[in-house]
Amino acid sequence: MPTPRLHWMRGRRDEEGGEARTLEWIGCDDAGAAIARVVRLQGPLHTNWRLYQAVALDTEARVVQLRPPPPAGADWLAYIGGQVVGRAALPLQAVRTAEAALGAG
């Protein structure tokens, strides 16, 4: 089964510190429906007197804590339908991971 190629577009961005960073890429099917996301991990992050080693933003931009934190170098998570399907050091690798998981599924 060939790996489906999604249409990837920029999602949320972080403008903090004057430097814009893309926090997520959203993979859409031909009909424009978002079916996969690759999300940049952030952390350590202090919120409400708590220290989170690694967090990501869910589809509603809520902070999701990752426990245990992923190993060093796994800065991007690939999600399909809210399920983590893989981790990667770089966004393009995470995109390939998501597309491969979609193809396999």
Binding site: H7, W8, M9, R10, A20, T22, W25, L90, P91, L92, Q93, V95
Partner: peptide
């Protein structure tokens, strides 16, 4: 090279997609 280099530039990522 592509995976690493393009990660610093969103427009380049879009060109790749």
């Amino acid at each position: 090279l592509l995976d690493t280099a393009l990660s610093v530039d969103d427009a380049a990522m879009e060109e790749y997609f």
